[in-house]
């Protein structure tokens, strides 16, 4: 590892972060600290701001207020060592006009602000990264012939190929079948054991239950829980549970929607 891990280094530091997208106020003052070697999960319902927070962390979403520091460097002013950060976006980008192979996509993970060219021996590193996600035999396959789960694994390999110290993943197992989820959990476990700091957005803990050390729950752009991973609600998998909630920026909502259909409580449902 290249990082000198002195005392608990703050790998990610977010202070009073506000993000607007058009007229909607998505993050409303988020504080978040992730220390070196931690495996933290970001939970929250749809629209709670998880993805926006992750995008703000990697410089894709611009904060309207507040500061973000990654590996000690402040976004927007300092030079962030992005070559030490691996980012796995939620979905493969919209299909582009020219097909590309898995190896070509993974190779783009080797570039950074300092390196605009592929380094020597990039083929070996690309093959190793694809091997880590179990796709060593798919190096020369075109992205569009791979299944959704395999495409997701290619994107994970693209983040791993630079041998990152921090890994930021946005719903890496959404729409991925069970065996792939298990394989993914195993590779995250290996990374955490190697000392990589992991921040992963999840919808439910699932296979990663035993790996994450801390959970941060967002609700309507605010952190409502930061600590031990919460248990899912007992009625979470009940037939009457509403997984999708229409969300309203005002605190007041029409009564029928705020009430949990099972126990009638007015507490909002966090999945």
């Amino acid at each position: 590892m290249r990082v000198s891990r002195t005392t608990a280094e703050h790998v990610i530091e977010v202070e009073r972060l506000h993000v607007h997208a058009g007229a909607s106020h998505i993050l409303r003052g988020v504080d978040l600290t992730v220390r070196a070697g931690e495996a933290v999960t970001l939970l929250g319902a749809n629209g709670s701001g998880k993805s926006t927070l992750v995008k703000a962390l990697v410089g894709v979403a611009a904060p309207s207020q507040g500061t973000v520091r990654v590996l000690g460097a402040r976004l927007g002013t300092d030079r962030v060592p992005w070559e030490r950060v691996g980012y796995v976006p939620q979905r493969a980008g919209a299909r582009t006009g020219v097909p590309s192979t898995a190896a070509e996509v993974v190779a783009s993970g080797l570039l950074s602000g300092r390196r605009w060219w592929l380094p020597r021996g990039w083929r070996t590193r690309v093959r190793d990264a694809l091997d880590q996600v179990g796709l060593a035999d798919r190096t020369e396959s075109a992205m569009h012939v791979l299944s959704g789960g395999q495409q997701q694994r290619v994107l994970i390999a693209r983040a791993l190929v630079r041998d990152p110290d921090v890994l930021v993943l946005d719903e890496p197992v959404a729409g991925v079948d069970h065996p792939s989820q298990e394989a993914f959990a195993a590779s995250v476990r290996r990374l955490v054991e190697r000392g990589v700091t992991v921040l992963v957005v999840l919808h439910e803990l699932g296979e990663l239950d035993e790996i994450v050390s801390r959970a941060v729950v967002l609700r309507h752009g605010l952190v409502v829980h930061d600590g031990a991973p919460p248990r899912p609600r007992a009625d979470h998998d009940a037939a009457a549970h509403r997984h999708l909630h229409p969300h309203d920026d005002e605190a007041r909502r029409p009564a029928p929607l705020t009430q949990n259909p099972v126990n009638g409580s007015t507490e909002e449902v966090v999945s």
Partner: peptide, 15 residues
């Protein structure tokens, strides 16, 4: 290629 393929990832790479 990186910028044309996935602009958000290119941003997150510091390109």
């Amino acid at each position: 290629f990186s910028v044309s393929h996935d602009e958000e990832f290119a941003v997150a790479s510091g390109l």
